[in-house]
Amino acid sequence: MLGTYGMFLVSGLAVGALYALGGVGLVILNRATGVLNFAYGAIGAVGAMTAWQVLEWHLPEPLAWAAAMGVSLALSLGFGLLVAPQLAHREPVIKAVATLGFALCLLGLMNLIWMVTSRKLGLFSDSLGFSIIGVRINGTRLIALAGGVTATIAMGIYLSRTRTGLLMRALADNREVAAILGVPVRRVEAIAWGISGVLAGFTGLLFGGLVRLDPAVLTFLVIPVIATTIIGRLKSIPVTFVAGLLIGVTESMLTLVKPLAPFRVAAPFVIATLALMWLQRGRRLTFAGED
């Protein structure tokens, strides 16, 4: 029986790694710019579809990876530089729902360019891999896990050791004050949009390979991914990463609880809600202001 639990644990970690990677990218952007990007999934989906197209043209695979991240970088940066500043004066929720508009644009665009049909994205890493306790883990999942860990550590170092990182933290803490103190807001924000775009492309590519290459599915996967960022309070990258893994494992383990098995996809939402209630326990908010 331990073996069965182990299998589901490992399987859950593999999916959790994807949630975690997505969550980390969302938090990085939110910290620096105050924007929760609902279009994150769509930006990644465009990257994944681009990679599929490159492979379809029989071009080498490294080019597909580069194209995925390049296209996502361009889209994220484009939105961040051209559209986001126009929303800078609005409250965070409005900024967030505006990105839903961007997600719809991208989804419509993808469906126009690539007729809706079933596709598969095959990556070199799919055929690599090894087995632990009866579950085979392929290379793509390992890349997801390693990518998540690397992004978490690298961003930690970046934010604490570099000057731009410092500026980003200043922006996250108090934008108005940071601007008055001479933080080059636009430049720092652009860097954050860029980093998050590359991560979106990378994540989209892995999701496309491991989950499904379907623009609509990839676009709306952002909603369970947001659950991980809630547990990280939209700020903490390591907590978000761990939350992603935890959610993936819980979702997978629920398969063993028969009456709940069909509902297990709701796990991210339920866990996030409970976690939030617990985090907020004993907190009272008496004065109107920011969160």
Binding site: F8, S11, G12, V15, V135, P224, E251, T255, V265
Partner: peptide, 8 residues
Amino acid sequence: ADMNSAFL
């Protein structure tokens, strides 16, 4: 998203 668990 999790097809592995479905297979298991």
